[in-house]
């Protein structure tokens, strides 16, 4: 259905207000507008992740998932950014979390981006690790897409030990775990 105002006449601009000046140079026609210019631009950054993300990334190199605890309410954030967004105080206590959890949200991706994207379609997932307050992002494989559901239990699949690095890519993907589903009610507020 066309939009309701498809036939609406666009109000013309007041004369003189938005008019383009007419070229006065001989041989310079009004319709000779430059359509585009090419301006290559690049800036190189030496980005550093900061103290808490450094602790997290170093943990991954040792096949450990290290969250950090809110100093007031005890919530565990993973991956940590060094701060509790709820109280605005630094997280200082590290908590090792298991590499298993519950699918808290997912979508089916039909157009893959990036060199490491799996063949499409695949499932992008948020995983609430056992003991964490917020969910981690990852890819869910080893299950037919139509069987994926919120509340299902999942486990990390790591790269081979000699490939482990201080990188989120040390976790290759997540796979289903043969355990009973968690009620969606219990995932509220943790996505």
């Amino acid at each position: 259905m066309p939009p309701a105002d498809a036939d609406r006449t666009v109000t013309p601009f007041p004369v003189g207000l938005w008019e383009q000046p007419q070229p006065s140079v001989p041989g310079e026609a009004a319709d000779d507008a430059v359509q585009r210019i090419r301006v290559p631009a690049s800036i190189t950054y030496r980005y550093t992740p900061g103290a808490a993300p450094t602790r997290f990334l170093r943990g991954l190199a040792g096949k450990r998932i290290l969250g950090e605890k809110d100093p007031v309410n005890g919530d565990v954030y993973v991956p940590p950014r060094g701060m509790s967004p709820i109280v605005g105080l630094p997280t200082t206590e590290q908590v090792e979390l298991p590499d298993r959890g519950t699918l808290s949200a997912f979508c089916v991706v039909h157009i893959g981006f990036g060199v490491n994207a799996p063949p499409t379609p695949f499932v992008s997932a948020l995983v609430l690790l056992d003991g964490a307050a917020v969910s981690l992002y990852g890819t869910l494989l080893e299950i037919p897409i139509e069987e994926v559901r919120i509340g299902m239990r999942v486990q990390a699949v790591w790269v081979d030990d000699d490939q482990l690095e201080p990188s989120f890519e040390s976790i290759r993907y997540w796979k289903p775990l043969d355990e009973p589903d968690v009620a969606a009610e219990l995932l509220k507020g943790h996505m």
Binding site: R81, G82, G88, P90
Partner: peptide, 25 residues
């Protein structure tokens, strides 16, 4: 300050400005 990210850099300053007057967010 390569060892801190931006939020780690600015949080103590925000906290100091609030603490100085006994205020919270």
């Amino acid at each position: 300050v390569p060892e801190l990210n931006e939020v780690e850099l600015i949080q103590p300053v925000i906290r100091e400005a609030l603490d100085a007057i006994g205020a919270t967010i």
